[in-house]
């Protein structure tokens, strides 16, 4: 039950994008089309789950026993950067169709603050291993959800009569604000 709460909390109530403002850059950049939003969300979820596992192992098996917690920022970012590289090479080798679908989005994920944020939250909140995995899956699901909803709205927005100065980033942010208000309705759930 506890695991379920962690999952729902990360995915909906404390949505990474709309409540914690993590991963805003891809949220604004890649939310033009629903298809690319889903691909980006899937790629991010995939990397998030692996990051959750690896960063938990790194923090609890290496940094804590040797009292090297102060190295967590450089070590996390290096691990994430190399992880993304490995994932890219692995997918390229194993599944060509998947690589074609996710390929261009993978390098972008390195600088996605949602990934590093996830790793930092896991070490900060002292989650257990299983909890970390559920947290990673939930955060990824929440990111995909927010990105897909946003892409759907923006596809409709193409037809709307938006003032010229507000086209692009400004109107996206305003829509995101309304979306964040809507997501606040889930606040009482947990």
């Amino acid at each position: 039950m506890d695991l379920f709460i962690i999952f729902i909390s990360a995915a909906i109530v404390n949505n990474f994008v709309l409540a914690y403002f993590l991963g805003i850059c891809p949220f604004i950049g890649v939310s033009n089309k629903t298809s690319s939003a889903v691909s980006m969300g899937m790629a991010t979820t995939f990397v998030m789950v692996i990051t959750a596992i690896v960063s938990w192992l790194l923090f609890n098996l290496l940094l804590v026993p040797y009292e090297l917690e102060f190295l967590q920022i450089p070590s996390f970012i290096l691990v994430i950067a190399s992880l993304v590289q490995f994932v890219e090479m692995f997918i390229k080798k194993v599944s060509q169709p998947l690589y074609r679908a996710l390929g261009i989005f993978l390098p972008l994920i390195t600088t996605n603050c949602a990934i590093l944020g996830l790793a930092l939250f896991i070490s900060m909140r002292e989650y257990s291993f299983i909890e970390s995995v559920f947290f990673g899956v939930g955060a990824g699901a929440g990111f995909t959800l927010a990105l897909t909803i946003m892409a759907g709205i923006r596809e409709e927005l193409e037809l709307a009569n938006v003032p010229a100065s507000f086209k692009g980033a400004p109107i996206t942010l305003i829509v995101a604000g309304i979306l964040a208000l809507a997501f606040m309705g889930f606040a009482g759930m947990i």
Binding site: F21, F166, P170, L173, I174, G177, A180, L181
Partner: peptide, 15 residues
């Protein structure tokens, strides 16, 4: 609240 951040920044960018 988080929503206010999005709205304010969106309006500021627009202006």
């Amino acid at each position: 609240l988080p929503a206010g951040a999005f709205l304010t920044l969106g309006l500021m960018l627009g202006f």
